[in-house]
Amino acid sequence: MAESPSHPKRGTPHIEARNLTMAFGSFVLMRDLNFVVRHGDIFIIMGGSGCGKSTLLRHMIGLLEPAAGEILYDGENFTKARPEQREMMLRRFGVLYQSGALWSSMTLAENVGLPLEEFTDLSREDIREVASLKLALVGLKGFEDFYPSQISGGMQKRAGLARAMALDPEVLFFDEPSAGLDPISSRLLDDLILELRDSLGATIVVVTHELASIFTIGNNSVFLDAQSRTMIAHGDPHELLAHCDNPVVHRFLTRGEDGEKVSRPHG
Protein backbone atom coordinates (compact mmCIF):
# COMPACT_ATOMS: atom_id res chain seq x y z
CA MET A 1 0.00 0.00 0.00
CA ALA A 2 1.49 3.31 -1.08
CA GLU A 3 2.03 5.66 1.81
CA SER A 4 0.78 9.06 0.84
CA PRO A 5 2.85 11.91 2.24
CA SER A 6 -0.05 14.37 2.18
CA HIS A 7 -1.63 12.85 5.29
CA PRO A 8 0.89 13.20 8.06
CA LYS A 9 -1.27 11.50 10.67
CA ARG A 10 -1.52 8.34 8.60
CA GLY A 11 -0.68 5.24 10.56
CA THR A 12 -1.04 6.83 13.98
CA PRO A 13 -3.81 5.52 16.25
CA HIS A 14 -7.18 7.06 15.47
CA ILE A 15 -9.95 5.01 17.05
CA GLU A 16 -9.41 2.91 20.12
CA ALA A 17 -11.82 0.60 21.94
CA ARG A 18 -10.89 -0.26 25.49
CA ASN A 19 -12.59 -3.16 27.26
CA LEU A 20 -15.79 -2.34 25.44
CA THR A 21 -18.80 -4.34 26.60
CA MET A 22 -22.07 -4.12 24.73
CA ALA A 23 -25.31 -5.18 26.37
CA PHE A 24 -29.06 -4.80 26.00
CA GLY A 25 -30.36 -4.73 29.54
CA SER A 26 -28.92 -7.79 31.22
CA PHE A 27 -28.19 -9.54 27.92
CA VAL A 28 -24.48 -9.17 27.20
CA LEU A 29 -23.84 -9.25 23.47
CA MET A 30 -20.06 -8.78 23.40
CA ARG A 31 -17.52 -8.20 26.09
CA ASP A 32 -13.91 -7.05 26.34
CA LEU A 33 -13.46 -5.63 22.88
CA ASN A 34 -10.02 -4.06 22.52
CA PHE A 35 -8.82 -2.80 19.18
CA VAL A 36 -7.00 0.07 17.55
CA VAL A 37 -7.80 1.62 14.18
CA ARG A 38 -5.04 3.76 12.66
CA HIS A 39 -5.48 6.88 10.58
CA GLY A 40 -6.12 5.94 6.96
CA ASP A 41 -7.10 2.36 7.78
CA ILE A 42 -9.99 0.61 6.16
CA PHE A 43 -11.21 -1.30 9.15
CA ILE A 44 -13.54 -4.23 8.62
CA ILE A 45 -15.94 -5.44 11.28
CA MET A 46 -16.72 -9.04 10.42
CA GLY A 47 -18.52 -11.96 11.96
CA GLY A 48 -21.59 -14.11 11.41
CA SER A 49 -25.09 -12.70 11.05
CA GLY A 50 -26.58 -11.41 14.26
CA CYS A 51 -23.33 -11.47 16.20
CA GLY A 52 -23.41 -7.73 16.84
CA LYS A 53 -21.52 -6.02 14.04
CA SER A 54 -24.11 -3.31 13.48
CA THR A 55 -24.39 -2.93 17.23
CA LEU A 56 -20.65 -2.32 17.51
CA LEU A 57 -20.94 0.29 14.78
CA ARG A 58 -23.80 1.96 16.64
CA HIS A 59 -21.66 2.08 19.74
CA MET A 60 -18.82 3.66 17.80
CA ILE A 61 -21.02 6.49 16.54
CA GLY A 62 -22.68 7.10 19.89
CA LEU A 63 -26.17 5.81 19.10
CA LEU A 64 -25.78 3.27 21.90
CA GLU A 65 -23.91 3.63 25.16
CA PRO A 66 -21.45 0.92 26.19
CA ALA A 67 -22.30 -1.11 29.27
CA ALA A 68 -18.63 -0.85 30.20
CA GLY A 69 -15.40 0.32 28.66
CA GLU A 70 -14.87 3.26 26.36
CA ILE A 71 -14.15 4.44 22.86
CA LEU A 72 -11.50 7.05 22.08
CA TYR A 73 -10.99 9.16 18.99
CA ASP A 74 -7.48 10.59 18.64
CA GLY A 75 -6.99 9.91 22.33
CA GLU A 76 -10.10 11.90 23.20
CA ASN A 77 -12.66 9.96 25.22
CA PHE A 78 -15.86 9.79 23.16
CA THR A 79 -17.88 7.74 25.63
CA LYS A 80 -17.33 10.11 28.53
CA ALA A 81 -17.43 13.33 26.51
CA ARG A 82 -19.77 16.12 27.58
CA PRO A 83 -22.70 16.70 25.18
CA GLU A 84 -21.18 19.77 23.47
CA GLN A 85 -17.83 18.06 23.11
CA ARG A 86 -19.49 14.99 21.70
CA GLU A 87 -21.43 17.09 19.21
CA MET A 88 -18.15 18.51 17.96
CA MET A 89 -16.73 15.01 17.58
CA LEU A 90 -19.84 13.81 15.76
CA ARG A 91 -19.36 16.46 13.09
CA ARG A 92 -16.17 14.74 12.05
CA PHE A 93 -18.10 11.52 11.32
CA GLY A 94 -19.93 10.47 8.22
CA VAL A 95 -22.25 7.49 8.38
CA LEU A 96 -23.80 5.49 5.58
CA TYR A 97 -26.70 3.45 6.91
CA GLN A 98 -27.75 0.07 5.65
CA SER A 99 -30.68 1.46 3.66
CA GLY A 100 -29.30 4.93 2.96
CA ALA A 101 -31.59 6.59 5.52
CA LEU A 102 -32.11 9.68 3.38
CA TRP A 103 -34.54 12.19 4.83
CA SER A 104 -37.60 11.41 2.81
CA SER A 105 -39.15 14.86 2.97
CA MET A 106 -36.13 16.51 1.32
CA THR A 107 -34.66 16.35 -2.17
CA LEU A 108 -31.22 14.82 -2.68
CA ALA A 109 -29.61 18.26 -2.85
CA GLU A 110 -31.32 19.26 0.41
CA ASN A 111 -30.24 16.01 2.01
CA VAL A 112 -26.62 16.62 1.17
CA GLY A 113 -26.94 20.32 1.87
CA LEU A 114 -28.50 20.07 5.33
CA PRO A 115 -25.28 19.35 7.25
CA LEU A 116 -23.61 22.19 5.33
CA GLU A 117 -26.50 24.49 6.15
CA GLU A 118 -26.29 23.59 9.81
CA PHE A 119 -22.56 23.64 10.37
CA THR A 120 -21.00 26.01 7.85
CA ASP A 121 -21.46 29.65 6.90
CA LEU A 122 -21.74 28.92 3.20
CA SER A 123 -24.31 30.84 1.20
CA ARG A 124 -27.32 29.12 -0.31
CA GLU A 125 -25.74 29.05 -3.78
CA ASP A 126 -22.47 27.65 -2.46
CA ILE A 127 -24.29 24.92 -0.58
CA ARG A 128 -26.16 23.95 -3.72
CA GLU A 129 -22.85 23.93 -5.58
CA VAL A 130 -21.17 21.67 -3.04
CA ALA A 131 -24.17 19.35 -2.90
CA SER A 132 -24.12 18.97 -6.70
CA LEU A 133 -20.44 18.20 -6.60
CA LYS A 134 -20.85 15.54 -3.92
CA LEU A 135 -23.71 13.97 -5.83
CA ALA A 136 -21.59 14.00 -8.99
CA LEU A 137 -18.84 12.18 -7.10
CA VAL A 138 -21.17 9.26 -6.49
CA GLY A 139 -22.52 9.32 -10.02
CA LEU A 140 -25.78 11.14 -9.35
CA LYS A 141 -25.27 14.29 -11.37
CA GLY A 142 -28.61 15.70 -12.43
CA PHE A 143 -30.60 14.05 -9.65
CA GLU A 144 -30.41 17.05 -7.31
CA ASP A 145 -34.13 17.70 -7.25
CA PHE A 146 -35.32 14.14 -6.98
CA TYR A 147 -36.88 12.88 -3.78
CA PRO A 148 -35.46 9.68 -2.24
CA SER A 149 -38.62 7.75 -3.09
CA GLN A 150 -38.10 8.53 -6.77
CA ILE A 151 -34.75 6.76 -7.13
CA SER A 152 -33.68 3.13 -6.82
CA GLY A 153 -32.22 1.47 -3.74
CA GLY A 154 -28.70 1.47 -5.10
CA MET A 155 -28.96 5.15 -5.94
CA GLN A 156 -30.32 5.90 -2.47
CA LYS A 157 -27.30 4.23 -1.02
CA ARG A 158 -24.98 6.32 -3.16
CA ALA A 159 -26.87 9.48 -2.27
CA GLY A 160 -26.48 8.48 1.38
CA LEU A 161 -22.75 8.26 0.76
CA ALA A 162 -22.77 11.74 -0.77
CA ARG A 163 -24.49 13.02 2.35
CA ALA A 164 -22.03 11.21 4.60
CA MET A 165 -19.20 12.92 2.74
CA ALA A 166 -20.78 16.35 2.88
CA LEU A 167 -18.63 17.73 5.66
CA ASP A 168 -15.41 16.01 4.49
CA PRO A 169 -15.44 13.69 7.49
CA GLU A 170 -12.36 12.24 9.15
CA VAL A 171 -14.08 8.92 9.78
CA LEU A 172 -16.60 7.26 7.52
CA PHE A 173 -18.76 4.41 8.78
CA PHE A 174 -20.47 1.98 6.44
CA ASP A 175 -23.02 -0.62 7.48
CA GLU A 176 -23.09 -3.38 4.87
CA PRO A 177 -22.54 -1.04 1.93
CA SER A 178 -22.84 -3.75 -0.69
CA ALA A 179 -25.98 -5.42 0.65
CA GLY A 180 -28.60 -5.36 -2.09
CA LEU A 181 -26.22 -4.15 -4.78
CA ASP A 182 -25.30 -6.12 -7.87
CA PRO A 183 -21.67 -7.35 -8.11
CA ILE A 184 -20.59 -4.56 -10.47
CA SER A 185 -22.08 -1.79 -8.35
CA SER A 186 -20.61 -3.25 -5.22
CA ARG A 187 -17.21 -3.42 -6.91
CA LEU A 188 -17.57 0.24 -7.92
CA LEU A 189 -18.47 1.10 -4.35
CA ASP A 190 -15.30 -0.64 -3.15
CA ASP A 191 -13.27 1.42 -5.59
CA LEU A 192 -15.00 4.56 -4.35
CA ILE A 193 -14.18 3.67 -0.76
CA LEU A 194 -10.51 3.20 -1.60
CA GLU A 195 -10.56 6.48 -3.52
CA LEU A 196 -12.10 8.31 -0.57
CA ARG A 197 -9.49 6.99 1.80
CA ASP A 198 -6.66 8.06 -0.51
CA SER A 199 -8.05 11.45 -1.48
CA LEU A 200 -9.65 12.58 1.77
CA GLY A 201 -7.25 10.71 3.99
CA ALA A 202 -10.28 9.48 5.89
CA THR A 203 -10.34 6.50 8.18
CA ILE A 204 -13.03 4.08 7.10
CA VAL A 205 -14.94 1.55 9.20
CA VAL A 206 -16.96 -1.02 7.26
CA VAL A 207 -19.33 -3.70 8.44
CA THR A 208 -19.42 -6.39 5.81
CA HIS A 209 -19.30 -10.10 5.30
CA GLU A 210 -18.58 -9.94 1.59
CA LEU A 211 -15.26 -11.76 1.30
CA ALA A 212 -14.36 -10.08 -1.98
CA SER A 213 -14.73 -6.65 -0.37
CA ILE A 214 -12.90 -7.68 2.76
CA PHE A 215 -9.81 -8.62 0.81
CA THR A 216 -10.03 -5.83 -1.76
CA ILE A 217 -10.31 -2.90 0.60
CA GLY A 218 -9.56 -4.02 4.15
CA ASN A 219 -6.21 -3.56 5.79
CA ASN A 220 -7.35 -3.96 9.38
CA SER A 221 -10.20 -5.84 10.94
CA VAL A 222 -11.82 -7.30 13.97
CA PHE A 223 -13.67 -10.60 14.05
CA LEU A 224 -16.65 -10.91 16.40
CA ASP A 225 -17.69 -14.35 17.52
CA ALA A 226 -21.23 -14.95 18.76
CA GLN A 227 -20.28 -18.19 20.52
CA SER A 228 -17.63 -16.81 22.84
CA ARG A 229 -19.26 -13.37 22.96
CA THR A 230 -16.04 -11.52 22.26
CA MET A 231 -13.58 -10.73 19.47
CA ILE A 232 -11.38 -13.60 18.43
CA ALA A 233 -9.13 -11.95 15.86
CA HIS A 234 -7.78 -8.50 15.11
CA GLY A 235 -5.51 -7.40 12.28
CA ASP A 236 -5.04 -7.30 8.52
CA PRO A 237 -7.50 -9.77 6.96
CA HIS A 238 -4.82 -11.01 4.54
CA GLU A 239 -2.60 -11.90 7.45
CA LEU A 240 -5.49 -13.45 9.33
CA LEU A 241 -6.10 -15.67 6.32
CA ALA A 242 -2.45 -16.65 6.17
CA HIS A 243 -1.61 -16.97 9.84
CA CYS A 244 -4.70 -17.05 12.05
CA ASP A 245 -5.10 -20.55 13.37
CA ASN A 246 -8.48 -19.97 14.97
CA PRO A 247 -10.72 -22.42 13.11
CA VAL A 248 -13.78 -20.13 13.21
CA VAL A 249 -11.93 -17.24 11.60
CA HIS A 250 -10.29 -19.50 9.10
CA ARG A 251 -13.57 -21.09 8.09
CA PHE A 252 -15.14 -17.65 7.68
CA LEU A 253 -12.35 -16.29 5.51
CA THR A 254 -12.31 -19.38 3.30
CA ARG A 255 -16.11 -19.77 3.23
CA GLY A 256 -15.59 -23.11 4.96
CA GLU A 257 -14.44 -24.52 1.65
CA ASP A 258 -11.48 -26.34 3.06
CA GLY A 259 -11.58 -28.49 6.14
CA GLU A 260 -14.54 -30.20 7.72
CA LYS A 261 -18.24 -29.75 7.07
CA VAL A 262 -19.56 -26.42 8.28
CA SER A 263 -22.06 -26.78 11.09
CA ARG A 264 -24.90 -24.34 11.25
CA PRO A 265 -24.78 -21.94 14.18
CA HIS A 266 -27.81 -20.40 15.81
CA GLY A 267 -28.92 -17.49 13.81
Binding site: E87, R91, F93, A101, L102, S104, P115
Partner: peptide, 17 residues
Protein backbone atom coordinates in the same frame (compact mmCIF):
# COMPACT_ATOMS: atom_id res chain seq x y z
CA UNK B 1 -41.89 6.08 13.76
CA UNK B 2 -41.23 5.60 10.05
CA UNK B 3 -38.19 7.83 10.29
CA UNK B 4 -37.00 5.68 13.16
CA UNK B 5 -37.45 2.50 11.15
CA UNK B 6 -35.60 3.90 8.13
CA UNK B 7 -32.82 5.17 10.44
CA UNK B 8 -33.46 8.78 9.39
CA UNK B 9 -33.51 9.79 13.04
CA UNK B 10 -30.19 8.04 13.63
CA UNK B 11 -28.81 9.87 10.62
CA UNK B 12 -29.76 13.21 12.20
CA UNK B 13 -28.32 12.25 15.57
CA UNK B 14 -24.97 11.13 14.20
CA UNK B 15 -24.74 14.31 12.23
CA UNK B 16 -24.83 16.27 15.45
CA UNK B 17 -28.33 17.62 14.73
Amino acid sequence: GTMKVTQEIDALATMGI
